[in-house]
């Protein structure tokens, strides 16, 4: 275990409870309701900021938030944009905020060292999926805000449930690092197992697993140079069958969606083709 995590304080319960309450209040105030006023939204932003600070403080007590300015920035972007995604009334703006959240998440993944996934998230989500949604939104709602965008279902209950769930998750994450190394982490990880194993594998037939050792021994600051190659080897080695299944899934989704969408429109064109 990391020495920093082992020496962290237990989570102050009061702080956590306060953040949960602030988050619930903020969500309730910010979610679209008929009784919204400018002041209630302002109050919601205030509570939201308080909740953010509270959770950051909790995270700090978990193990040093603030050590990495880049991580804090991208995490802040993703969390704030995520909140904005669900509370914004205009669906187009909601989608834009979701794109911002994606950018933040992609940044988090890059900081975590998953270069391929970080960039692939942008390519797949922001580049293809979200553009389609924007298409639909822009065509469906040229102007104004529909009534169903100005109310939400059970905002109070949902906000409370979400905040409590987040509190519980935070608590368990805190337990994870503050206590003795828990069961999941006590198991030797693959890399640790390899690091512990004698290094005679280097240069032998299994070159890939030999280079996989390198990050574990070379220290945490090193950027993993062959990240994509490793991921590809893993994907098309151990998980080849799953990749094939995913490919079939994509094909089925493609064919299915085209079949559903073109069911009603084919008649006129077909008729014309036949007549000519």
């Amino acid at each position: 275990m990391d020495p920093v995590a082992a020496t962290t304080l237990p989570i102050p319960g009061l702080l956590l409870a306060g953040s949960v309450a602030a988050l619930a209040a903020s969500l309730w105030l910010l979610l679209p309701k008929t009784s919204d006023t400018v002041n209630s939204r302002r109050l919601g932003f205030l509570f939201g900021a308080a909740a953010l600070i509270g959770f950051a403080a909790t995270g700090r007590s978990l193990g040093g938030v603030g050590a990495d300015a880049v991580f804090l920035t991208v995490a802040g972007i993703s969390v704030i944009s995520g909140l904005a995604t669900i509370v914004t009334r205009s669906p187009v703006y909601s989608a834009i905020w979701f794109a911002m959240a994606l950018a933040g998440v992609s940044g988090v993944l890059l900081v975590l060292g998953a270069q391929f996934l970080g960039v692939a998230t942008i390519v797949v989500y922001a580049g293809a999926i979200l553009v389609m949604f924007l298409f639909v939104l822009m065509l469906a709602q040229p102007s104004g805000m529909a009534p169903y965008d100005r109310v939400s279902n059970e905002p109070m209950l949902a906000a409370a449930a979400g905040a409590v769930l987040l509190g519980l998750l935070t608590l368990s994450i805190g337990r994870l690092s503050a206590a003795e190394p828990p069961a999941c982490c006590r198991l030797p990880s693959r890399a640790q197992a390899m690091a512990a194993a004698p290094t005679e594998g280097v240069g032998s037939e299994d070159d890939r697993s030999a280079t996989l050792l390198a990050p574990a021994t070379a220290g945490v600051e090193r950027v993993d140079a062959d990240e994509v190659a490793h991921l590809g080897a893993e994907l098309f080695g151990r998980h080849l069958f799953a990749v094939e299944v995913a490919g079939v899934l994509l094909l089925v989704a493609l064919v299915g969606s085209i079949a559903v969408v073109s069911r009603g429109e084919a008649t006129e064109t077909d008729h014309r083709r036949e007549s000519r």
Partner: peptide
């Protein structure tokens, strides 16, 4: 990725 951002 960035050329797909430019679509926005």
């Amino acid at each position: 990725a960035l050329s797909s951002i430019a679509v926005y």
